[in-house]
């Protein structure tokens, strides 16, 4: 399916950031800045990616359902890991200017149903936050003191299940206000609005990357474990037991390596027992500090 492979480890690439963006004009400045290349253009949802920097991007088209579908497509197509951050970036209407200001959505409401989502950790040191209403057709009344878009709610419905709510972000740049009609928005203006905020967006990426790395560390399965699970036929129960006792064993003996050659004639249960014994023996002089 995906053309990406990691030649060294023969593992899937590790994308840390997944962008879900409605319009090509919104995506282009990011694609250029992060040096992403087109990797899929045969489906409804074009995908761009840069394996080296860990960024992947899907263009969803306009609408909440398309946003959810495109995010799902990206997740499946590139086999995105469960520690990756998901970001919906785009333009939005706002009840006040100036045009070009950037906001993090702290609450996303699907206007039609009232369903509410609360994406992401607050990036309050970087950008201000605002409530966002996702509407099904362009909003020109700006009746409430909120941002208006047409995608975020669909994105928020799906993306948290791919990693978690705290790694799901909705970032919007004001493109139209009561004093600057949405009818004036052009592709050129959209690109310009995004380009002007690129530096801020890169700052945000740096902050989110810290969280992604932490989750990656927490969720990653060590290579030693993967090797053993490939070599031995663990039942699901034994696989759980093995991973759990390996975790404890590794904390107890951080400098030790689990040497496959020592266990070549062992059964999975024997491997587990051996680790349990070593952990138990070590517990007699246990130091929690």
């Amino acid at each position: 399916m995906s053309e990406f492979t990691n030649a060294e480890s023969n593992m899937d690439p590790q994308f840390k950031f997944c962008w879900v963006i409605a319009l090509r004009a919104e995506a282009k400045p990011l694609i250029d800045a992060l040096k992403m290349k087109l990797v899929e253009n045969k489906s409804l949802f074009p995908i761009y990616a840069n394996e080296e920097t860990g960024h992947a991007l899907v263009i969803s088209g306009t609408g909440s359902i398309k946003s959810a579908a495109a995010a799902t497509f990206l997740k499946t197509y590139l086999k995105i890991n469960d520690y990756s951050a998901w970001i919906n970036l785009g333009i939005a209407g706002f009840f006040k200017g100036p045009i070009g200001d950037i906001y993090q959505a702290n609450k996303v409401v699907l206007k039609e149903s009232g369903a509410a989502f609360f994406p992401g950790l607050r990036l309050s040191k970087q950008i201000p936050s605002a409530i966002l209403f996702t509407v099904s057709k362009p909003e020109n009344g700006y009746k409430e003191k909120v941002l208006y878009d047409m995608e975020a709610a669909g994105f928020c419905e799906m993306a948290p299940s791919f990693s978690c709510n705290e790694l799901t972000y909705v970032i919007k740049i004001v493109s139209d206000t009561p004093n600057a009609s949405s009818s004036l928005i052009t592709k050129h203006l959209v690109r310009e609005l995004i380009e002007k905020q690129l530096s801020k967006i890169l700052d945000i990426i740096a902050e989110i990357e810290i969280l992604v790395e932490e989750e990656k560390k927490r969720l990653s399965i060590p290579n030693e474990v993967i090797e053993f699970e490939k070599r031995f036929k663990f039942t699901e129960t034994n696989k759980y037991k093995f991973r759990e006792i390996y975790r404890k064993w590794k904390v107890a003996f951080p400098s030790k390596k689990l040497d496959l050659s020592e266990f070549l004639n062992s059964q999975p249960k024997e491997i587990i027992l051996r680790l349990e014994k070593e952990v138990l023996f070590n517990a007699e002089d246990w130091n929690v500090l």
Partner: peptide, 18 residues
């Protein structure tokens, strides 16, 4: 509607709880 949402990450949220 906020507190009981699914797919929350307690550890990350603890960094900047609301």
């Amino acid at each position: 509607e906020l507190f009981n949402k699914r797919h929350q990450n307690f550890k990350l949220q603890k960094k900047n709880p609301a």
